[in-house]
Write a protein that binds this DNA or RNA. Structure first.
Lengths: 224, 224
DNA sequence: GCCTGTGAACCTTTTCACAGCA
DNA sequence: TGCTGTGAAAAGGTTCACAGGC
């Protein structure tokens, strides 16, 4: 284990590392050797102090008076984020959203390979989406273990979410990305992140309403 | 303007109001008259102290020794979130994701009516998705104004995101939900929230990796 | 001279603990 | 007695401002 990976990196910083990663990828393609915290901040849509603080948690990878070496920093961030590995992914719930996610090239790009599609509807089982055939939820445990799935994407209706999450966890999945509009709990040692479209719209609605009635200023930046 | 709507409600609280709203809707259907902060917390996946603090920003709507009146609280939260109105929505970018969002019944449910679908691809223009025909991006300004669109959903490729955001803002849109994997800035007075699948997976990957190498505990709850 | 790295100050959010009221 | 409402304490995150090395 390296010195950097032993540090405790704040959650807020972890959530921004992917932004820096993306910005650096775009910069790297333009053959730029070094980048200042100011420029990186601009590309990532944050401020320079935050960039420097965030990167300092990884280690002292910059050079005073010069900036950060793009290639080196990219390498370090990839390593921290686990992007140097491949993570096999399963999508459960092949409805509108699940199908869109299955077809979404862009995950695949950086090591997140969708290997398994699962649905409860017998009419869908066996149906091919891209290169994959939909598997029955009855075979969840088996197929998840077979493919050593680490990350599960939950795109089922709300009513099925907790049950499917439990099955995924039982089958050894320790990271879940939950698109179902439902509160869903997982045991200690399993991470879950939620993406909820209805909630996002409702938050926008709140500020929209405030703008309409008073002259309140909306928030400019988001944590996640 | 009411007393409650004059208070400043913390951003973190605003982001949780939809959770309470949903929990209360589910409770209301079960004909329960009152609910304790403890029970509401359980349903919303947070803790009771947070519920009480959050609700206290809206006003003193509970009864000591009893709890909160479900119907009344539901009404107050709807009002705060602007769910008593209808917000016309436009989706720009009718690819995999845009199409899934267009077909997603569930927005529509609570006042977010998708009225306009926009794409840049001439082959798609005129094509029907559900009850709506796809409109050309050349007509964005016109159609957005015509429908008094308040909320725009951005589901274009990253490369088009900033340009489309600018056009939406120019056409009078003041809330944007951005699914494009790109940093995108909007002027003061416009809200933007980001949903980025790749970033979510990368965050999961970070903690997944930590669990694999050390025995670090992942975070249990998320802000948004 | 320039830009990073970082303590210190500041602000936001969460949690605690209990007074206050039905 | 039971559960809300809320000051106060604690934790977490952001920004400032400048020392420190290239």
């Amino acid at each position: 284990m390296t010195a950097a990976s032993r540090r405790r990196i704040p959650e807020a910083t972890v959530a921004r590392l992917p932004l820096y990663y993306r910005a650096l990828m775009e910069t790297g393609e333009r053959q730029v050797a070094t980048i200042s915290s100011e420029r990186l901040a601009e590309l990532a849509g944050v401020n320079a102090a935050k960039v420097r603080k965030d990167l300092s948690y990884l280690g002292s990878y910059g050079t005073r008076g010069v900036g950060y070496d793009v290639e080196y920093l990219l390498h370090e961030i990839s390593r921290e984020l686990g992007l140097t590995r491949d993570w096999p992914v399963a999508i459960v719930g092949i409805g509108n959203l699940g199908r869109a996610l299955a077809n979404y090239r862009g995950f695949g790009a950086r090591g997140f390979r969708v290997e398994v599609l699962i649905d409860a509807d017998p009419a869908l089982v066996g149906h091919r989406i891209g290169e994959l055939a939909v598997v029955s939820i009855d075979d969840l445990d088996e197929v998840v273990r077979e493919h050593s799935i680490a990350i599960g994407i939950l795109a089922t209706p709300a009513s099925a979410a907790q049950d499917v999450a439990d099955r995924l966890v039982a089958a050894g999945v320790t990271s879940i990305l939950n698109f179902a509009p439902a509160v869903c709990s997982v045991p200690e040692g399993v991470s879950m992140r939620k993406v909820d479209l209805a909630i996002e719209l409702q938050i926008l609605s709140f500020y929209q309403l405030r703008r309409a009635t008073s002259g309140a200023t909306p928030p400019r930046e988001r944590a996640g």
